[in-house]
Write a protein that binds this DNA or RNA. Structure first.
Lengths: 319, 319
DNA sequence: ATTCGGGTTTGACAGATGTCAAGCAGGGAT
DNA sequence: ATCCCTGCTTGACATCTGTCAAACCCGAAT
């Protein structure tokens, strides 16, 4: 795990150093390296893509600092970041850029899966953090989106240069007794045990609607959805329905899911939630009320749509 | 300490977001912001200078990885980085870029002073790390270089956005008994106490020659220097002469210096040494032999000049 | 020996960026 | 009211950068 060095990209590193640190122009770098300018350009692109050089962005000074503070105080978050909504793609990239900074040194990071998490994962910067371990928090399902459950954790681990522990089990079974037996299997038990020891978790809040990945991927069928929805389901967190107050709901899925249980999730000390869009504002607000997040990354649209629902005095700041 | 927000540079942040994250061209950003392209360019410069956006550089993949590994194993360092020597200015910038990453979260960082540390400090990226506390490890002296002792710690703290504790005492006094009395003064005692609790230290290795800042600033006069030098002084660490094996030397300065003592320095768990140039190779090697560093940033010139002096088998790596 | 195919490098162009002197706005002094 | 000074903004130019099709290289297959 330490022996296989990832084949250092010598010329790219040299070019990147001369360009970014020595502040030579691409033409000057080309002259020193004895190649063409175009090649230098390609080397620099490579250096960026492999994470050798990185442009990072301080999210705190993004203008929406006031909204972020309001959210953080209202829901007792350690930290909240509100990104501009005008360009969803950019917001996702910005979120991807800051998530790694929210994961502490040496942490074991549990990740859920879903469209948001997957799209975030795709945009994570390439890093080298062998100190991290990524573990899949929710069992797998074949997914209609072109990604499947394992891909989320695997991709995140690959991007972050971290180790990866996948949960080799389906997300849902038809019979609680089978779940119980499976959970006693040593391989699965060990993985569930790792989950209980996570230092951090990364997940999104899903919708309790037929567009939700939990429905699309078949974890819940339409009847199940209708049942939970009829009883007030406000959203989905790590594969579990929650009500408007963020309480995990019981129902026909009880005992049939393989993955971290809500109380286990809540025991993880750092819980990073990434969720965008006004459409998800209600679900997000419910999850926050349930205390699922300690760190939140969202966008202005969601933040504004949540504002009327702030639990207490939204702003008591001075003039 | 938390109330005075540092006046968020709204337009700069907005421009930086649109440019770096949304990946618009400067012209497009200008159109959206209703200003000229040149202004956008200025805003982007400002964003870079204030640390809002930052280009960071992975130092591990810099090509000299083999030399770095040799040094690390030879001297039992946790981490060593060897930068190219062809452009000293660039090496200093690169070092400045990586030093903040070597300082752990929430640490109290002791800093020595001298030309290297000061020049490094000037090139540190602008950050916001209120979790850090910078403390001056060595007493002050009027300095002939245009910087004085306090400037090092103050500048480092300012750059890093950290708190700062300065040592309000001279580096050297004529009489040990006066030092002892001064050290019992509550104000000084408290500061020395903070020093004993540092989580990390940053310093350079100085030369035991008349060019050394320790001589130039008057901590040691020429006679003192001649004495220590005659008895085999190989370098200076945090204001104290060390011999070729890195042992602190006794002499006429005994008991007359105010600042962290060598054994106190060695008790700090993370000791970051930054020293460049073949001329300092001997001094650096001595300091490393004395175990003063856990983390080293140096250049190829110094590394090569040190190579013959490696304590044991320099390279036993494969083909 | 020759051909083929993949990947890399190059040259040239279109477009983006950095620079700088001139222009402009706002505030303080006369 | 006018002037001047300072600091920000602008337009225009010179340079630098990104792109892409054509050229090239090299190993594998015929």
């Amino acid at each position: 795990m330490d022996g296989l060095e990832p084949a250092l990209p010598g010329p790219a590193a040299r070019a990147a150093y001369l360009y970014h640190v020595s502040e030579l122009s691409q033409a000057e770098v080309a002259a020193r390296l004895g190649v063409s300018r175009a090649t230098v350009h390609n080397l620099l692109r490579e250096a960026r893509e492999t994470g050798l050089v990185r442009v990072s962005f301080d999210p705190h000074l993004l203008g929406r600092a006031d909204q972020a503070r309001d959210l953080a105080t209202a829901y007792g978050l350690e930290q909240a970041v509100v990104l501009p909504s005008d360009d969803p793609e950019a917001a996702l990239r910005a979120a991807a850029g800051m998530v790694p900074e929210l994961v502490p040194q040496g942490a074991t990071l549990g990740v859920a899966w879903g469209e948001t998490v997957y799209r975030l994962a795709q945009r994570l910067p390439q890093m080298r953090r062998p100190d991290l371990t990524i573990v899949q928090m929710v069992g797998s399902m074949a997914s209609p989106y072109g990604f499947n459950a394992e891909d989320c954790s695997t991709l995140i681990a690959a991007r972050l240069g971290a180790a990866c522990v996948n949960l080799h089990a389906p997300a849902v079974l038809s019979d609680p007794s089978l779940v119980a037996r499976l959970a006693r299997e040593p391989i699965i038990a060990r993985q569930l045990d790792t989950l209980a020891r996570c230092d951090a978790a990364l997940f999104a809040v899903g919708l309790a609607s037929r567009e939700s990945h939990i429905v699309q991927s078949g974890v819940a069928d339409l009847d199940t959805l209708a049942d939970y929805h009829g009883r007030g389901a406000a959203g989905v967190v790590a594969g579990r329905f929650i009500d408007g107050e963020g309480r995990p709901m019981s129902g026909s899925l009880d005992g049939r899911l393989i993955g971290i249980p809500p109380e286990g999730l809540l025991r993880i000390p750092r819980r990073i939630v990434v969720t965008f869009g006004a459409a998800r504002a209600d679900a997000l607000a419910a999850a926050l009320r349930g205390g699922f997040a300690t760190h939140l990354v969202t966008d202005a649209a969601a933040a504004e749509a949540m504002a009327p629902r702030l639990p207490v005095s939204p702003r008591d700041a001075g003039p």
